[in-house]
């Protein structure tokens, strides 16, 4: 019975890992390069996923491509260049800063600056305390009202 259970559990564990390809690497650095690359490359079919996350056919092919290139001794930069030559900067989750991607990089900073300036301007404008002249007569009335309020 125990053996049966063990067999069952082992089969199940096989299923859990079936989605990720088993890759062998020459060394830890290569493994690291592979992991880094597949989590920096965009799957172009399901655009908000990296090729590490995606199960799309193209993502599988691109993972295979990355693996093969690393096996051939190519560097991370070589692989990134290979991908951008074919798919453009869009394939990189971390695109380089250049004229075409400038808005992408600078945009958020500009919007943050606009927001900060707007907040500052708003705070400044409301800083001046609202002072109003109150006549002695009104002051007396206020006091009496406040005292009344306290009693009730």
């Amino acid at each position: 019975m125990k053996i049966l259970m063990l067999v069952l559990l082992l089969t199940l564990s096989g299923f859990a890992g079936a989605r990720v390809e088993y890759r062998e690497f020459a060394n830890a650095e290569q493994q690291q390069a592979y992991d880094d690359l597949i989590s920096e490359l965009r799957c172009l079919v399901c655009q908000n996923q990296t090729i590490a996350d995606s199960n799309a056919d193209l993502a599988k092919d691109l993972r295979r491509q990355v693996y093969e290139m690393l096996q051939q001794g190519k560097t991370k930069q070589d692989v990134a260049d290979f991908m951008t030559q074919r798919y453009g900067d869009f394939v990189l989750y971390n695109p380089p800063f250049k004229a075409k991607t400038g808005v992408l990089w600078v945009g958020p900073v500009v919007f943050l600056a606009i927001g900060l300036i707007a907040v500052l301007a708003f705070v400044r404008r409301n800083k001046t305390p609202a002072t109003a002249e109150i006549s002695a007569e009104k002051r007396k009335k206020i006091h009496s009202l406040l005292e009344k309020g306290d009693k009730s």
Binding site: L44, V45, L58, D61, L62, Q65, R86, Y87, G88
Partner: peptide, 13 residues
């Protein structure tokens, strides 16, 4: 069949 020409041509859809 294995999609390698596709990769070279930047095919994604």
């Amino acid at each position: 069949q294995d999609g390698r020409i596709g990769i070279d041509w930047g095919v994604y859809g």
